[in-house]
Simulated assay, not measured.
Amino acid sequence: MGERVLVTGGAGYIGSHACKALKRAGFEPVTFDNLNTGWAEAVKFGPFVQGDLMDRAAIDAALAEWKPVAVMHFAALSLVGESMKDPAKYWRVNVNGGLNLIEATVAAGIRNFVFSSTCATFGDQDGVVLNEDTPQKPINAYGASKKAIEDILFNFRDAFGLNHVIFRYFNVAGADPEGEVGEQHEPETHLIPILLDAIDGKRPALTVFGTDYPTPDGTCIRDYVHVMDLVEAHVLGLRWLLEGKGSRVFNLGTGKGFSVREVIDQARLVTNREVPVVFGDRRPGDATALVSGSARAVEDLGWMPERSTMPQMIRDAWGWTRQPRFTE
């Protein structure tokens, strides 16, 4: 059995894929999840501890029992719209929960921490390729709460020697091509699974919010990364820490965005089906184009986002929709 890694949110979309990647890399992932948005059926690659980050004693007990060499932190509330309507919830759960976890990690003598952050910490910086040195100006409670955890990690590095790797990224798409885990949210808010559900008749249509943006086809542009590429970066970040290379921040993206219309066109080609679409007004707060580069991750970690083409992401997500849904 390999070295253990505590994975918070390991029953969720990205966390479950991370557990698969960790196991494949020779580690033993221990999932810590309250199943608020995750699925017990997604925990397939190591032990499961059902617990909540608001419960410090539960975290302490899990770290004492499993003695991981590192913590990989995915668990968080992550709906931007909800965070704008109920910011207190995001500050309470994401920040207090994250601080509990970080304090417990230090108290247990663990000094390696991988954090799943977000490019939402940069705020609305339209039309530029974001890098790690771009000023952070979050415009909603979700981005602000994630930035707060980053700030806490910098403080705990200086005070206690807690080395960390922080990953910031935008849209994650695709699924495990072997079909063991995939993307399933209730409610679903991500473009590609909503689009595929519309193709499959699980919802009436995909609503495109805004067709008058200053882009080549009038729709918003976003960066997408395949979930398996993303979690492999997290494993590389873990190895970076275990090799004693110190704290580092990495953006993860392709540097190239896709418009909503381009995603729809690619889905039509991949599935050979028409996409039911209705057009609506712009949503408040939607930026025109958000794209992140990843030159540092490529150069320092040797990261290769080979699966992060739109056809591949849609193809793997479409394959997942052919699987029985999680029910627990």
Rank of each mutant, 00 (worst) to 15 (best):
F326E: 04
D217R: 09
T321Q: 13
V278C: 13
A25D: 09
R168P: 00
E82Y: 05
A88K: 15
D158N: 06
E103V: 10
T207S: 09
I14W: 00
T219N: 10
R325K: 15
R24W: 14
C119P: 00
D60C: 06
F27E: 01
Y13P: 00
L162R: 04
A21V: 02
W66T: 04
D60E: 12
H17W: 08
A287D: 09
L252Y: 06
Y13E: 03
V298E: 14
W91A: 15
T37M: 13
A11S: 10
T134K: 11
G179S: 10
S292W: 06
L63Y: 05
D158R: 06
G218V: 02
Q184E: 14
E132N: 05
V249L: 12
L301A: 13
N94S: 10
R239V: 08
K23A: 03
N272H: 11
F113T: 00
K23Y: 12
S16Y: 00
Y13A: 02
F279S: 14
A233F: 10
V181K: 00
I152L: 11
G246K: 09
R157D: 13
A11M: 04
G10F: 01
F154H: 09
V275E: 03
I139K: 10
L153V: 01
A295C: 10
T219F: 07
R283M: 15
N36S: 15
V263H: 01
P177T: 13
A64K: 03
M72T: 02
G123I: 13
A57W: 12
H234G: 05
F326T: 02
L242V: 11
V291C: 04
P276I: 05
I102H: 07
L241Y: 02
N112K: 09
N251Q: 11
L191C: 08
S145T: 10
L130T: 01
A144W: 00
R92G: 15
N140H: 15
G127I: 09
F167G: 00
L53T: 03
V249K: 01
G319Y: 12
P214D: 14
S294G: 10
I199P: 04
